[in-house]
Design a protein around this nucleic acid. Structure first.
Lengths: 153, 153
DNA sequence: CAGAATCGTAACTAATAAAGTTACATGAAA
DNA sequence: TTTCATGTAACTTTATTAGTTACGATTCTG
């Protein structure tokens, strides 16, 4: 089944924005993420509505972070996307008349809800700053060199 | 995203088989489950290979349980289906060169693996007998009446 | 003010996988 | 030998994200 990769996509965007340090356009981000600027804008729309990022139109416009990395949990980002369905597994009939099917739905739903609760809790424990701090030193050095160079110009 | 309802479907089939007590054809099951006999056969194929059910061709053939309800956990059934993907959420790029994306994948994968492990563990704790015993008394009585009536004939 | 850069969004296409359907070969019983 | 079943291939349908095209609205620059 085809996966929903929007959470992965916007997390990638947010951390590239943090690494870049300045406004990035949808086209910049699309290049980093090997996708299309419209996909970036469409997917980031929820984050803008939630205040996690800001966007500016017009010449010199683009995307900036709306909060510190440490103040954005993965759960915040997931919620800003509209809390999309976590599971690919589901019930064959959602409100069945059959008592057998209802009993099955109840049990499966129970197990799925537990797993979803654990997942969302874990996402709530992780901030963008946690991920950022885990990124390997070589990359940090690379980013730093890029910043230094751009400041020279 | 469209859901994979095969687990729900075959659990429903197994418990109807248990309730019915005798061989049921794919057409019988398809009626119970409001689907197509070919969908039943296709989906049950994995359960046959795993020994959870048996099938007989030809006149008087059909499906029978291969084990006691108490000896079949939901995890067994899930595994017999080929352990289909649990999550609708996934990584945008599975093996990215970008260090940021790798860090994101690592974190997301970790959280998803934990949630999946919990789900599979819960499925392992539940047997078909557990679900069967939870089905409301009115239905049990209904099934019993049907059995008695068919024995009278 | 003209023009370029940029987002916002609608509308369409592509890709994917389960579900549903049709068709037919195989096998078993009456 | 006919009928009733399963087994399976192949095709259609459906739903959803991803990708693309197009264009309007906005904002900076010269």
């Amino acid at each position: 089944m085809k996966l929903d990769t929007r959470l992965s996509l916007v997390l990638h965007a947010l951390l590239h924005m943090a690494g870049h340090g300045r406004t990035m356009t949808s086209a910049d981000l699309a290049l980093c993420m090997d996708t299309n600027p419209v996909v970036v804008r469409r997917t980031m729309a929820g984050l803008r509505r939630a205040g996690l990022v800001r966007s500016e139109k017009g010449h010199g416009g683009g995307w900036t972070l709306g909060r510190e990395l440490a103040e954005i949990s993965l759960r915040d980002v997931y919620a800003a996307l509209g809390s999309p369905a976590v599971f690919a597994l589901g019930n064959h009939t959602e409100s069945p008349g059959c008592l057998i099917e209802r009993a099955i739905n109840d049990r499966l739903d129970g197990a799925l809800r537990e797993a979803e609760a654990l997942l969302v809790a874990r996402l709530g424990e992780l901030t963008l700053a946690d991920i950022w701090s885990g990124i390997a030193d070589p990359f940090m050095a690379h980013q730093q060199r890029r910043k230094d160079h751009s400041h020279d110009q």
